[in-house]
Amino acid sequence: MERIELSTLAILAVILFFLGWWFKGWARRLRQQVENGEAVEPTEETVLQAPPPVSLPTPAQVSQEPDGPVPFGYKTTWMALRCDDPERVISALRPRLRQSANWTTGLAAVEAQMERRVFVSPALEGWVLAVGGPEALQEELAAQFPQAQRFMSHRTSGCFGWALYENGQCLRRYACLNGQVESTGELTPQERVLGFDRFPTPENADTCETLPDEEDVLNIAAAWGVDPRFEKTAYPPSAGWVCGL
């Protein structure tokens, strides 16, 4: 009987040891969460559950070291907004989170998740570029700035287009998707200089064989304001922001 009691006490001692070890680990993790701002004291108020955060690249993948600007414009969409303060653009985006990033890593992060991220550039001589994001959000941005431009270039789908807005009103829009054409407003002087009158219209889309391509999108972007190839204008090294939507 004495041996049984000793065995029982030994088992209880082991159990208590592991319970104490587990409790210390749990308390340590809880303390770390509180210090990091991850733990919230319970309240009687109803707490709305926030949407899950967008997965942004890790610090090893996103660098804040100023570089570029880095050429872009292929297989992407972007906007040029008449603005000298990137914070105004970020505020208009209403991002769920933001992360400082240079051009190289910021553009790469947006390319990996085009519909859920936007790279906001620093100001470039009165313009701020917003690369990526869904079409509906880009239309919202266009309405909030005195002048805005929108560009689309996707060689795989054969989709190329550009649009010009002033004070929220679309003055000119052209888009060509596999021969299907949308064209509103008069050609701008810059389009005429570039020879864009050779492109199809809704009226002659079945017979016109001269279609726009990605170089045409870059050319009109340069003519209207900012050349995303950055071939002729030199800007100092800088960094922007990746915004998670």
Rank of each mutant, 00 (worst) to 15 (best):
V110Q: 00
P86D: 09
A175V: 15
Q149R: 13
P146V: 13
L107T: 07
W162H: 12
A108G: 02
A136F: 02
V128Q: 02
R192W: 01
A148W: 00
C176K: 03
V131Y: 01
A80C: 06
R173V: 08
Q149A: 08
E182Q: 14
T105K: 07
D197Q: 14
F119H: 10
V128S: 05
V131W: 00
P189H: 08
E191S: 14
G168R: 08
R172I: 03
P200V: 05
R155G: 15
S91I: 06
C170N: 12
A143D: 06
N204C: 10
M114E: 11
W162L: 07
R94P: 03
R88W: 00
R98P: 00
Q144G: 00
R98E: 15
A148D: 06
F160H: 11
E125Y: 04
E87F: 07
A175N: 11
E125K: 11
Q190K: 03
E140C: 09
N204R: 07
S157M: 07
P86F: 04
R155S: 15
A148R: 00
L124D: 05
L171R: 14
E111M: 09
Q144C: 01
T188K: 13
L177G: 00
T201S: 10
S153C: 14
E203N: 04
A205P: 03
Y174W: 06
L97E: 15
E186Q: 15
R150F: 09
L107D: 02
R96L: 13
P202E: 05
W103C: 09
R155W: 14
P202M: 04
T105V: 08
W127I: 12
E166W: 05
Q147D: 01
G179I: 03
